[in-house]
Amino acid sequence: MADRIDYGLLETIASALRSVSSDIDSLADSLPSSPDAGNGTAAIVGILSKFAENAGNLVVGAAAAAEAVMSAKVAYQENDLMSADLITRTGIKAV
Rank of each mutant, 00 (worst) to 15 (best):
M1V: 10
M1K: 04
A2K: 12
A2P: 14
A2E: 11
A2M: 10
R4K: 10
I5P: 07
I5T: 14
D6V: 06
Y7H: 13
Y7T: 10
L9F: 11
L10Y: 12
E11V: 05
E11Q: 14
T12H: 10
I13Q: 12
A14V: 02
S15T: 15
S15D: 14
A16P: 01
A16S: 14
A16R: 11
A16C: 02
R18A: 04
R18W: 02
R18V: 00
S19H: 05
S21F: 06
S21P: 03
S21Q: 05
S21D: 04
S22A: 15
S22Y: 06
D23V: 07
I24T: 14
I24Q: 08
I24K: 10
D25M: 02
S26C: 01
A28T: 13
D29N: 11
D29Y: 07
S30Y: 10
S30E: 05
S30G: 00
L31M: 11
L31K: 06
S33K: 04
S33L: 05
S33Q: 06
P35A: 10
D36Q: 09
D36P: 00
A37K: 05
A37M: 09
G38A: 02
N39S: 13
N39Y: 03
N39K: 06
G40F: 10
G40W: 08
G40L: 11
A43G: 03
I44S: 11
I44L: 15
I44K: 05
V45P: 02
G46R: 09
G46Y: 04
I47P: 00
I47H: 08
L48Y: 04
S49E: 08
K50D: 12
F51P: 00
F51A: 08
A52S: 14
A52K: 15
N54E: 09
A55K: 02
A55F: 04
A55Q: 08
A55H: 06
A55L: 13
A55R: 10
G56H: 03
N57Y: 05
L58F: 09
L58R: 01
V59Q: 13
V60W: 02
G61R: 02
G61W: 00
A62R: 07
A62S: 15
A64R: 12
A64M: 06
A64N: 14
A65V: 03
A66L: 03
A66W: 03
A66T: 01
A66E: 04
E67H: 03
A68G: 12
V69P: 01
M70S: 15
M70V: 06
M70H: 07
M70Y: 07
S71R: 12
K73A: 12
K73Y: 00
K73G: 01
V74L: 12
A75Q: 12
Q77N: 11
E78S: 13
N79A: 15
N79E: 07
D80K: 04
S83L: 14
A84Y: 10
A84V: 09
A84S: 15
A84P: 08
A84N: 15
D85P: 00
D85L: 14
D85I: 09
L86Q: 10
I87Y: 01
T88E: 15
T88M: 11
R89G: 00
T90N: 11
K93T: 14
K93G: 04
A94H: 03
A94K: 07
A94Q: 12
